[in-house]
Design a protein around this nucleic acid. Structure first.
Lengths: 354, 354
DNA sequence: CTGAAAGCGCTTACAG
DNA sequence: CTGAAAGCGCTTACAG
């Protein structure tokens, strides 16, 4: 921020030309060992650091990546994605410039006006995994999609592996001996809803179970949706329901996400079912505020948010040439797996049935 | 990102010099109406936009603000703060450059290396309202503190008005007729804990109540802390506790935040107390994931996160001169008030007692 | 191995 | 009212 020493000062201090200073510092030209040392000492004495603006002016490289986020405020995961993106960028001497747009406001002029020419490439992060159309102001050769996919544009895309993540959740239930496992989800045909349903069905069927999918009305997957879906799943409250040993009743629920799982907890409490004993539950997200706060703690599959941020930045850096392009060109879509976080919401099916 | 038209192209197209183009566009020199029109038309035809890098090079103004956030991932509010900061910056043709540092890592070299000379000023956002020491690499004349305060540095600071926010929460309870109101909080002497306790005591005493403050061990104000504090408040579970009409028992609880309030809900459930009837609760934060998801919905005081982001950026812009300095120099610390968000966790004291 | 010079795209005194 | 020129701090052919 303060006016500081320029390459000219260093040249004077070292008694060489600015060309030589530049060569010595960049390692691009050839410089004798003695000269290099003199330059380095001068840099040290003066506390010189190159002016990135001037460098950008000359090289047309900003060492800046744009990060367009959709409704960062509404997505509690955004933080981790940004941290990952940020860290990966920093590891390669890049910095992140953030523009937050309203949900769906892909034509926000700021994408054009502010990002344009200030950044080398753009990571466009959707608020949730879904299919979108790339904003026209973004150059496909300089953009990567995060948590989104555009079938019509040749843009690299980084998304969670929804099917595998669902399979991980279901397997946690299967491993505890459950077979009557219901899946609670919402309406909609986006990759998250669809992928999880498919992963659930495939994994459960392979284990000899019969899929039961309950969709709460609407597309918002929050606690209220979980409450609605669970209420539907268990049917009307009947006296002594908690004591009834219904052979048909699911012993376990795989919720679309942790928020819906929270709704399941609420229904269980209303009906006197104890989570982890009378009913096992698994979610997706590992939302700290929910998963760790619930009692008992919710076992869930953590989405690889930080990894996604990192991967997206890596691909953007490949586009700009700051990172070498992979030898074997990767597929357009990179799918990342999640990880099971074990807490106390899954009990063994044997105990559950007793 | 694409190589685009320069001021030279516009000059050629309009048949004038680049100086004249610059004057016409900036409004700085004097230009005839006809010439200005010709320039504007040329700009239009060519789709010209000035290169911000080149401008920065000349003027030593980047139109970029640094936003250093501490552990953005761990704070669910950070999103809103950034959205506010972002919007205010955009309103003044500035852009935000974000660097996320680990908690307490104020000496992170990236603050120095990346922010330095790339930004006009820095907003330094703490993860929670507390007293800190300004990182040495930051120029006090070009820095504003957000959710933090440094008594030793002459730096503008934007923080929530903790006392007023606590008063708002307590008043919501008083207005419903409650007088036996306990405050659940944590250990620690930071501005948030201290300010809320003071606001609570002052407001309650003024209304004729007697303060009861229960501190959960530790400084982490999460659901588990709320559970511990509420358990201590209500004492050991006794048979028929829900039916016992204890004249001493608080009819309402003011929790340090929504997460602790969640712990109160859990204790209430364990003891058969219904929130909003047997016990009224108010929190602070308006965390969507918690406040809106709880049943019944949690009445809480929303912190002015977006406003804080905006205010901090405004002050930073005043420092750089992009915004005129206020006539009457403001106090070093700007305190922002919160707003009550009414849901269903507060019942009237009359009903509660019945 | 070293350096003089051009140029990236602007803005800003200064002269006409 | 208009424009030629200098210069912001670098990098990069090119020449010596």
């Amino acid at each position: 921020m303060a006016r500081s020493t320029s390459i000219r000062d260093v040249a004077a201090e070292a008694g060489v030309s600015i060309t030589t200073v530049s060569h010595a510092l960049s390692g691009k030209g050839t410089v004798s060992a003695r000269t290099r040392l003199r330059v380095e000492q001068a840099v040290e004495r003066l506390g010189y650091a190159p002016n990135p603006i001037a460098r950008a002016m000359r090289t047309d490289r900003r060492a800046v990546l744009g990060f367009v986020s959709e409704e960062i405020a509404s997505t509690p995961y955004a933080g981790k994605i940004i941290v990952g993106a940020q860290a990966e960028a920093a590891a390669h001497d890049h910095v992140l410039m953030i523009v937050d747009i309203a949900a769906g406001a892909f034509d926000d002029p700021r994408i054009d006006a502010l990002i344009q020419r200030q950044v080398d490439a753009v990571v466009f992060a959707s608020a949730s995994n879904r299919v979108i159309r790339l904003p026209r102001s973004l150059d496909p050769a300089r953009t990567v999609l995060l948590d989104a996919f555009d079938p019509a544009a040749p843009v690299p895309s980084v998304v969670p592996d929804e099917q595998d993540i669902a399979a991980t959740a279901v397997r946690a239930l299967l491993d505890a001996g459950h077979r009557r496992i219901a899946h609670l989800t919402v309406e909609g045909a986006g990759p998250a809803v669809t992928g999880r349903v498919e992963g659930y069905e495939r994994t459960l069927v392979a284990a000899g179970g019969t899929p039961v999918v309950v969709r709460a009305g609407g597309e918002v997957a929050d606690a209220a949706a979980g409450h609605r879906a669970a209420t539907e799943l268990f049917g009307p409250v009947s006296p002594g329901a908690a004591d009834r040993h219904d052979a048909e009743r699911p012993t376990a629920v795989f919720a679309f996400n942790d928020q819906m799982a929270m709704g399941v907890y609420q229904v269980a409490e209303e009906r006197g079912m104890r989570i982890g004993r009378d009913l096992s539950v698994v979610g997706i997200d590992d939302l700290q505020l929910v998963a760790a706060a619930l009692r008992p703690g919710l076992t869930t599959v953590a989405l690889p948010h930080e990894q996604m941020g990192r991967a997206a930045v890596r691909r953007a850096l490949e586009q700009t040439g700051a990172l070498p392009a992979p030898q074997a060109p990767r597929a357009g879509v990179e799918r990342l797996r999640g990880e099971l976080v074990v807490r106390d919401s899954i009990g063994s099916a044997t105990v559950t049935r007793s």
